[in-house]
Every structure is written in structure tokens, then in C-alpha cells.
């Protein structure tokens, strides 16, 4: 135990043992896959039409927003060229599915169906469509454990989208999925409703990806720091389809 925790040399043993774990995970995920299969098969024609229409509308909206975004991006890159700041690195993504979660209530970790054979590595960022989810902490041949941002041992470097105030978001201990901003002084400009995006510090998460919404700010004069609670953007307990970020090969220019 001590050896596994403190030294790295048991990692390979663990990796080989994980091959035996694959069938168990596969069988344990069967109920979820079966229900998804039946959902796909037994859909009425009108439901499909309605869904198609909804998706078309969403696509239109998204394309419109993309146009705006493109202009913003070009403007942004021109401004960045002026300041010669580091370019934002944009990577490809690897689609994955959440197949299980930690049987331990105290640790908020999920198992995904992508592993070393798909090129997953420790420290890779996991995103959902609507926000940051977590980072890979352990890689097995065909599956990996991901530590969620709501785990009390996980700290996400964030910034307030409105004004760029930097902060650290730590998962709140207990059953909730909320985050808590640490070491934010009472005079700093953070308000309920502010969007927190990842600041890119720590080099694990991409910059400017939405993380959470601030829900409450409690300024107690007796405390050193403000008590700020935030709710993650990603639906941490109900998402199945996620993305793993594949960083491009050393494209950072200074």
C-alpha cells in the first residue's frame, strides 16, 4: 500500500492487473447500454421528426453563434498578435462515455471507456458539452478513472469571466456537487451569477472553458476570506457522453 502510494514502480503491475478488470466493467455496464439500445430502437416517427426539427433549430442557432465567435476569434488573435501573448492552443477531442462511478461516496470519480490503447494519459482534461468535468488520474488498458472537479481533493484554477479575477475552485466536501472558491478576499469583485472559466494555469485545462456559475457570495467580516459557492456548468451526475482533450504537439509560441 505504502509502496503504491509513494513510489511509482507498482504502476506497471496495476496496469497489467487491470486487464482482468475489463470484463467486469463491461458486464457491469450492460444494463445502461441495453436501455440506451432500446431507447434508440423504440422511437416513434413523430418523436424523430420533432427531434429532427429541434436539432435543426439548435444547429441554426449554433451556426449563428459560431459566426459571431469567428469574428471575435479573429479580432482576438489580432489583439494577441499586438501583445505577443501566448496563443491559445486548441486541440482535438476524443469522444468517451462514462460507464461507472466510484463505489466510494467520499471520492467523486468516474470511469470512462477509453484507456491507454486509445491514447489516454494521466492529466488529460475531460470536458462535457456544457462545461469542464475533470482530469484523468489513472489509466488502464481500456478504461480510465477521472477525478471530477467537484471532488474535495481537486482544485481547478479559474477566473471570473467578467473581469479576469483569478481564483482556485475546490470541490465541497460531502454529497453536493458544488465548488468553493478559496482565498478570495472580501474586497475582490465576485458576484452571484458570474461565470467562472478555466484560467489555463496549471497547464491541464484549456483556457476560457466554462467551469461554473457563482451562486452565493458570503462576506462575513469575521472571516479572512469571502465564502463563495459555485455550481458546475456540466451536469456532473447525469452526463454520459464526454470529450477528452488531445493537446496539439507543443504548439505554444512565445
Amino acid at each position: 500500500m505504502f509502496a503504491d502510494n509513494r513510489f511509482g514502480y507498482l504502476d506497471s503491475v496495476r496496469f497489467i492487473l487491470s486487464y482482468t478488470a475489463t470484463p467486469v466493467y463491461w458486464v457491469a455496464d450492460m444494463p445502461a447500454r441495453t436501455s440506451e439500445f432500446f431507447d434508440d430502437v423504440f422511437v416513434s416517427h413523430s418523436d424523430l421528426l420533432a427531434e429532427n426539427e429541434r436539432l435543426t433549430n439548435e444547429l441554426l442557432l449554433a451556426q449563428r453563434e459560431l459566426q459571431v465567435l469567428a469574428s471575435l476569434a479573429s479580432e482576438n488573435s489580432r489583439l494577441r498578435a499586438l501583445t505577443e501573448a501566448a496563443r491559445i492552443v486548441e486541440g482535438e477531442v476524443l469522444a468517451a462515455e462514462i460507464v461507472n462511478r466510484s463505489p466510494e461516496r467520499a471520492s467523486k470519480r468516474v470511469l470512462i471507456n477509453r484507456g491507454a490503447l486509445h491514447g489516454v494519459f494521466v492529466g488529460q482534461a475531460m470536458l462535457a458539452a456544457d462545461g469542464l468535468m475533470g482530469q484523468v488520474v489513472e489509466v488502464m488498458p481500456r478504461s480510465s478513472w477521472v477525478l471530477l472537479i467537484s471532488d474535495p481533493l481537486h482544485i481547478t484554477p479559474v477566473e471570473v469571466n467578467r473581469n479576469g479575477e483569478l481564483a482556485l475552485a475546490r470541490g465541497v466536501r460531502g454529497e453536493t456537487d458544488e465548488l468553493e472558491l478559496e482565498f478570495v478576499t472580501q474586497t475582490q469583485d465576485v458576484h452571484p451569477g458570474d461565470l467562472l472559466v478555466s484560467s489555463g494555469m496549471g497547464q491541464i485545462y484549456p483556457k476560457n472553458f466554462p467551469v461554473a456559475d457563482v451562486v452565493s457570495v458570503d462576506n462575513d467580516p469575521g472571516q479572512d476570506f469571502a465564502i463563495i459557492k459555485a455550481r458546475p456548468r456540466a451536469k456532473i451526475n447525469s452526463t454520459r457522453h464526454v470529450m477528452l482533450l488531445i493537446p496539439p504537439k507543443q504548439e505554444v509560441q512565445l
Binding site: A3, D4, R14, S18, V24, S102
Partner: peptide, 17 residues
Amino acid sequence: GLLLDVLEGTMLGLNAF
């Protein structure tokens, strides 16, 4: 116990112990 450790993703040897 060792296999359970691998499955649960806990430290190797914890459930074994």
C-alpha cells in the same frame, strides 16, 4: 482484495489488507 483494488481504483493493497 488486490483485484478489487484495481476495480475500484483505490490504492493497491488496501482491500487486500
